[in-house]
């Protein structure tokens, strides 16, 4: 039977390195998805992910159990990501790296990646780029709620715990973000 987060946290506090690793592996992929949604650049997302876990395990004693462990972890991650975005907004935006995770040579050479039509893949990449451009038109706070909801499937209540705001604020930001995304995508597509 899989240990609970609480059990792993208790063991991690006592120096159980295996528990640390277990917790990290339990949440790293989920968090990575959220962070990619927030910052887009995969290297930046990984860096923020690493920093998140460093802070989590440094400050494990500060986790009081008022919220769930993963809510606490997400809160740290989102704060780092939002800080990053605020700093990054002052720099030129990063171009969407179409080469990441894709075989550039596969387009048009007949060896369709995973059986998908290469022209569909081009279209998919273009759409993906437009999606991120639309996401980046949102403020960090609006981006946070839409990513937590759409990428990680957190409930409104969980989002409010992570972002430390009221449910009403979550729903208001979500509504605004969805409307704006739809409008932007409609213009682009």
């Amino acid at each position: 039977m899989e240990p609970t987060d609480g059990e792993l946290v208790d063991r991690a506090r006592l120096g159980d390195r295996g528990a640390v690793e277990h917790l990290l592996e339990r949440y790293q992929r989920r968090l990575l998805g959220v962070l990619v949604g927030m910052v887009r650049n995969p290297e930046d997302a990984r860096e923020i992910l690493q920093e998140t876990f460093i802070r989590v395990f440094r400050n494990l004693e500060n986790f009081k159990g008022d919220s769930s462990f993963y809510t606490w972890v997400y809160r740290i991650a989102m704060n780092l990501a939002i800080d990053y975005q605020r700093r990054d907004s002052k720099r030129p935006s990063v171009e969407f790296d179409e080469g990441v995770g894709r075989d550039e040579d596969s387009v048009g050479d007949g060896s369709a990646h995973l059986g998908v039509n290469p022209f569909e893949r081009i279209r998919s990449r273009e759409l993906g780029q437009k999606i991120f451009e639309a996401i980046e038109s949102l403020t960090p706070d609006h981006r946070a709620v839409i990513i937590l909801r759409e990428i990680d499937g957190l409930s409104y209540e969980e989002i409010s715990e992570v972002l430390q705001c009221s449910m009403g604020t979550v729903m208001s930001r979500l509504h605004y973000a969805r409307k704006k995304l739809q409008t932007r995508l409609h213009e682009m597509l």
């Binding site: 990575l32 998805g33 990619v36 990984r46 992910l49 690493q50 995770g101 998919s124 839409i146 995508l185």
Partner: peptide, 20 residues
């Protein structure tokens, strides 16, 4: 769907093997 797919494709390519 587009958002989830776009994020998943990028995230899936990130190597987290050395994270721990």
């Amino acid at each position: 769907i587009l958002l989830s797919t776009a994020v998943a494709e990028i995230a899936a390519a990130v190597d987290v093997s050395g994270l721990f």
